[in-house]
Design a protein around this nucleic acid. Sequence first.
DNA 1: CCTACCGATCGGTAGG
DNA 2: CCTACCGATCGGTAGG
Lengths: 197, 197
Amino acid sequence: MGRIQVNKETLSRKNIIIEKSAELFKQKGYKATSMREIADMVGVEAASLYNHIHNKSELLKIICFDVANYYMEMMNKVEVEIADSLHKIEKLLRFHIVTTILQYDKSHVAEREWKHLEEPYLSNYKNQRRIYRQRFTALIEEGINTKKIKSIDAPTAVLILLHSVSGIESWHRSKVKITAKQLEENMISILIDGIKQ
Amino acid sequence: MGRIQVNKETLSRKNIIIEKSAELFKQKGYKATSMREIADMVGVEAASLYNHIHNKSELLKIICFDVANYYMEMMNKVEVEIADSLHKIEKLLRFHIVTTILQYDKSHVAEREWKHLEEPYLSNYKNQRRIYRQRFTALIEEGINTKKIKSIDAPTAVLILLHSVSGIESWHRSKVKITAKQLEENMISILIDGIKQ
DNA sequence: CCTACCGATCGGTAGG
DNA sequence: CCTACCGATCGGTAGG
């Protein structure tokens, strides 16, 4: 997700369009968001958007793969940098939590709207997702074999870990109550205690 | 969810329409599903649907409140029938898991598509959801006060518990690997160990 | 980047 | 339950 910058004024027009799209896709869903609404948010006419992007589905494609590629990079990094499997999982979870908080709109869209991708990107995305989960499952199994993790069904554990994180949205709306760091520590405490031996 | 029956032949035409809608809304999303597609699945022309329902949004309304009301009933039941707070939570979680497996389409739609409800049902639904989560949070806090549950942020625990269960969908597609009962026991083991003292 | 516009599809209705 | 149809809105294009 290197494309994301904090200072909005340094964003290219194309990236402004992507940011606004992510915001609207998250709020209303991909199908319920019209190109005219995106254009309104950007401050141009709908026809002008097509000077920066090919079509609506390209916007979704960029958002989804931006997120998916980032998570795959984190997996690659963790695999080589950390030895202990439980530590690998904890590090990945922390990555997931922080990314979901910082890149709230895009994470939400990649998680909930990917089914509206067009072929061949749909198959491509589903494939990448399947591979990511397999690698995550392998980490859990590694932990079970080395007695760091209790004997549970590994795919079920992955399901719980990843879906817990993607549920962060509902907390996000009431962020008065707890800081991002506190949220992270609480989630890690519950989830790691839930799986460890 | 008393409206759901196993024997499809005993379903009224209206309930057939609701079942097929839930299936399509889950697969394609509410906005991407047309009345013509629903009609095709039922085996009639689109115009004929309107003899059984008022409009498209009524279908979503029925599905969402069917699920929400059922969960609220479970909450009421658990509150009066069980004394220990950790047992209450475990019982509720088991209800959630079993319902999500058995009423897969409707649960998924209620969870992911409710934002397309029209007013006043949208506000009504969000309200009911908020109340349910508050009551769930109170159960966690009760457990913390009685030392049955470790000292964590209760809303975060609720977020994890409920979103873990709604993530069951991804398992559902590969049900060859594990039975529903095994899934339930694995989830309970991970989640209850994650929160208990 | 805008004006003007188009073909397709949508939810829904009239009338039988 | 169907045929026929309508007004609105959609994604996208032509041409400047």
